[in-house]
Design a binder for these strands. Structure first.
Lengths: 116, 116
DNA sequence: ATATTTTGCTTGACAGATTTAGCAAGCGCT
DNA sequence: AGCGCTTGCTAAATCTGTCAAGCAAAATAT
């Protein structure tokens, strides 16, 4: 019932086969060498570049987030943090560049003092 | 008119300074060598590993999506919310309620002072 | 049946990411 | 003045992603 964790390689190979494309066809479309594609699909690359993964996602029409997750990269979830930040931004309002610099320095001062 | 794009290096250095931490302090917490941190902050690394960026985001309390974007990586669509309004807050990082009040007060002080 | 093209794959070499070891300048303490 | 510790930085070394070139088997063509 629960689907097993698929490897990036399996996922990519499936996606390519679904599209009915060959390694060299993908190479033509993405500028990624067929050699490297082969290694990718056999899980021989530990940390493939997100840009390569993104190109493949666009070509295959699969989710970039999913693929990044499968590749072992942290996937952005901006649920809580950004809301807080939006709130803060609202309270501070628009700042001049100078004000911003002073604020940052003041905050650094606050924290370096407190931690000792 | 608001903020031009900041470099990853500037962003990371600011975030670290806001936290009041030293390169070696960050190294202790993240297992990322201070040497590499230095190169990161002076923009000498073209494609830093997302895992490293993620560790730094967690430590600094800044948005992972923002940092990934600054690093030139494609970011999943639903993370593409308006960064302009959150830009400053992202740079400041997560604040305690106390810190936030202090900052707002300090900003008020700055402005009253300037207004002559 | 054999030559030609196409397929997936491996090897060698290169570039770039990351670390280890070390440097010189700065700071507190006596 | 010195000494010890910390700071940020860099040079060299190591590891790893990426590609160009080539290979053997399968498909295709003649």
């Amino acid at each position: 019932m629960v689907k097993q964790k698929q490897s990036v390689g399996e996922f990519l190979r499936r996606a390519r086969q679904v599209k009915g494309m060959t390694l060299r066809a993908v190479e033509r479309e993405t500028q990624i060498s067929n050699a490297y594609l082969s290694q990718l699909e056999s899980d021989k690359i530990g940390q493939p570049s997100p840009l390569k993964l993104h190109k493949l996602c666009e070509l295959y029409g699969v989710s970039y987030s999913v693929l990044m997750g499968l590749a072992g990269y942290p996937v952005p979830d901006h649920s809580l943090i950004d809301l807080k930040q939006v709130g803060l931004a609202a309270r501070l309002g628009a700042l001049t560049g100078e004000e911003e610099t002073e604020l940052v320095e003041y905050l650094a001062f606050l924290r370096s003092r407190r931690r000792r």
